[in-house]
């Protein structure tokens, strides 16, 4: 696991002010994620894992500490600079997919490229390529509402990888899916990590999902409780082959 660090967090704190009360969400987090790692973050609600993911995703700025993303200090950037960093370096996968129902699959996948200022033709090519990679090229002109949950999440993954990010942040990516479809999606994310070498940080509260990652970070009360490699991480593709095909769920 030698390589350059993709993410370096140094003593990251996050304090929310709610009227008179101060809520300390993160109490000095130190974490380094190397390029190409696949990390799961677990913890009960209120443990600060969502706050941490928001800071990792440059959606929020830490109150204190320094965050290096790909060697660049991003903890003091302004809103516009953060938007640029999100656009160029980060791909998001959400629990509820967050696809725009009014637009067809292709337009959904193109969205990050719109804000990257990519030309129309190249946009279409790259979006189709990404959809092909997640096995959704047949559904280019479908609308999200016409797809199953698993298919929608595949489209969302295509959207996350279309602008070649260096890290992908997944917030409970399997939270809205049944167990077989969950493993399907995990297998796509594992392929993303292994074939494309993209660093993956995934928040989940399902232990069996977390065990597909190679490193597991446990959080509680704004601190990292444990941080250890996973012994024999699961291979989702193999597990999928072992589960009998269910009715009506396309592979």
């Amino acid at each position: 696991m030698a390589g350059k660090p993709a993410i370096v967090l140094e003593n990251i704190t996050k304090i929310y002010h709610m009227g008179e009360t101060r809520v300390i969400a993160l109490k000095g987090i130190n974490l380094t994620v190397q390029e190409g790692e696949m990390v799961a973050i677990m913890g009960p609600s209120g443990s600060g894992k969502s706050t941490l993911l928001n800071i990792l995703g440059c959606l929020d700025r830490p109150t204190g500490g320094t965050y290096y993303l790909g060697g660049e200090d991003v903890s003091r950037l302004n809103k516009n600079q953060l938007a640029l960093v999100r656009n160029k370096k980060i791909g998001f996968v959400f629990q509820s997919f967050n696809l725009l129902g009014r637009f067809p699959v292709l337009a959904n996948v193109q969205l990050p490229l719109v804000y990257a200022g990519v030309g129309k033709k190249e946009m279409e090519e790259r979006a189709k390529e990404a959809l092909d990679w997640v096995g959704m090229s047949r559904y280019v002109h479908h609308y999200p509402g016409q797809l199953s949950g698993g298919q929608q999440q595949r489209v969302a993954i295509a959207r996350a990888l279309v602008n070649d990010p260096s890290i992908i942040l997944a917030d409970e990516p399997t939270g809205a899916l049944d167990s077989r479809t969950s493993i399907e999606i995990i297998s796509v994310i594992q392929r993303l990590n292994m074939e494309k070498g993209i660093t993956v940080v995934m928040v989940t509260h399902e232990k069996d999902i977390a065990l597909y990652c190679r490193r597991l970070v446990n959080m509680r009360d704004g601190c990292i409780l444990s941080d250890a490699p996973v012994e024999n991480p699961g291979n989702a593709s193999d597990d999928l082959a072992a589960i009998p095909e269910e009715m009506g769920v396309p592979a």
Partner: peptide, 14 residues
């Protein structure tokens, strides 16, 4: 939708 657009890189002026 606005949140998502921001997450994938839309600036305030976008």
């Amino acid at each position: 939708e606005i949140g998502l657009r921001m997450a994938v890189g839309a600036t305030e002026s976008n």
